[in-house]
Design a protein around this nucleic acid. Structure first.
Ligand SMILES: [Zn+2]
Length: 274
DNA sequence: GCATATGTTCCCCC
DNA sequence: GGGGGGAACATATG
């Protein structure tokens, strides 16, 4: 479910609730979420009583920096989300199905919900290099993005495959890869080596502008509405999609093409991107 | 029963 | 070494 825009939505909503506050307790209801920690008691002991010093995001990773110093790394994978309650009137019975982790602070209770349990929480003593593979798709400058893309100027891989590669740019997933290509008026299947300078430049500008708009609209909730923000509200950016999960192009009205690329459903407009 | 799902990793193969 | 394809993880929905 969550790509960079959805993770950033959670980050912005969690930050004011957690920053400077102490995690009074954490409950683990499903062992898979903390699967890197066979000993759950040690994990719980590390987190309980810690104060949140920073709430950051890199790509699709969310990172809570704690004091005493440790890093609580979180990845939501396909179906992870958060939901907040006021401590004052919270009861366990309020937790939705598939609530696997619950974080308690003085005033708020934050539940982590994840039907497919692909998501992960794990602790490291320092910032872990595994999250820093590619450059962040949103926080990097246009110059940095252009330079990074230039490294693939000879690549025969389709441009969408490059955008989806987290070791190149970190944070773009299937929805926004399609939307970035549509916004840049480049077919997702086009070989990266065949992109003109102007097309490369449009891709870079579109990475920034599509993600900015998507964050402004608190992400995309598709038909199943499985993405809800911290307050249980659906996002709004799906209403601004040009092509992804659409029947017709919202720019020109022509029929949307659909194919498989890198094993993922891929939507495009032949008229606008041809 | 089948296909699909906003993600990542691992294995096999060319 | 690069890169493609498929399977795996586990659950829900059409
Ligand atoms: Zn169009």
């Amino acid at each position: 479910m969550p790509e960079l825009a959805e993770v950033e939505t959670f980050r912005r909503q969690l930050e004011p609730l957690l920053l400077g506050n102490t995690i009074e307790s954490i409950e683990l209801f499903h062992p898979r979420i903390t699967r890197r920690h066979p000993n759950k008691k040690i994990f719980i002991k590390e987190v309980e009583g810690a104060t949140v010093k920073k709430v950051s995001r890199y790509g699709k990773y969310l990172i809570l920096e704690l004091s005493p110093v440790s890093f609580l790394n979180i990845h939501l994978r396909m179906s992870g989300r958060f939901l907040v309650f006021d401590s004052e009137n919270f009861e366990i019975s309020m937790l939705p199905k598939h609530s696997h982790v619950v974080i308690y602070t003085k005033e708020k209770v934050v539940a982590y919900i994840d039907p497919r349990t692909f998501g992960e929480f794990w602790l490291t003593k320092s910032r872990t290099p595994e999250i820093d593979k590619g450059i962040d798709a949103f926080d990097s400058s246009q110059y940095q993005l252009y330079e990074k893309l230039s490294q693939y100027a000879l690549s025969k891989r389709p441009i969408k495959t490059i955008l989806l590669d987290q070791s190149v740019v970190s944070g773009i997933g299937n929805i926004y890869a399609d939307e970035i290509c549509a916004n840049a008026q480049v077919l997702p299947t086009k070989r990266t080596c065949d992109l003109s300078d102007s097309e490369n430049s449009k891709i870079v500008k579109s990475i920034k502008s599509v993600l900015q708009s998507a964050i402004d609209d608190r992400g995309s909730s598709l038909k199943d509405e499985s993405f809800r923000d911290l307050y249980g509200n659906v996002g709004q950016y799906q209403n601004k999609h040009l092509v992804h999960a659409r029947k017709t192009c919202s720019k020109c009205g022509s029929e949307i093409g659909k194919t498989k690329l890198a094993g993922r459903s891929t939507y495009f407009c032949r008229h606008c991107q041809g």
